[in-house]
Amino acid sequence: MSGFLTPFRQAVRRDLLLAARHKTEVITALFFFVIVVNLLPLGIGPDADLLRKIAPGALWIGALLATLLGLQRLFAPDHQDGTLEQMALSPQSFTLLIAGKIMAHWLVSGLPVVLIAPLLGVQFDLPARSLGILTLSLLLGTPILSLIGAVGAALTLGVRGSGVLLSLLILPLYIPALIFGAGAVEADLAGLGFEGHLSLLGALLLACTVFAPWVTTVALRVALE
């Protein structure tokens, strides 16, 4: 089993090492998340009741945008310097290598968002229980964003205006994750159960884990032609 996952681990290790050499990029994405979420009260007004109501949606949309930011650089640098080509020609499974890259992307851009989300939730006056559910929903949901995003990043690799195009392709596909993720907190605030939302989010995560890396490799092979 561990032998089977070696390429996955190697790719994660490599991308984390690269991220460690580019600390500013990681911090920029996180800072972007914090600032976008903080701008909302400034645009809407400091009414605590209203803020509590929009908090889940605001944090989730912040997370979507922060993920998009990093996605543009998920494959582009490797494509430019030829390392992606070498990965595609590796005797190891290309799909597992790519899954490793997606995992590393989540660790670098998704996980920090999940960790800082409770702090921002406090700014929106969310009760402790909702903070827990929000964090849990982001923990289940942000990997989905990285997985679906990888498909989009692969499709737009090396294409004119790929950044904007990527958002156009990917954001509609993020809607289910957004609805179930933000909905979990809202349902709980409304006194309905949140478990349904989270289990649907979990099912979505499972489906994406199985299919997204594979579709991404197919798209990458097309892009490399």
Partner: peptide, 18 residues
């Protein structure tokens, strides 16, 4: 938009299909 952005028609077809 994706198809319009890709110059090589073969790649545009495949990417669009995916």
């Amino acid at each position: 938009a994706l198809q319009a952005a890709i110059d090589d028609p073969r790649r545009a077809d495949k990417a669009g299909a995916i």
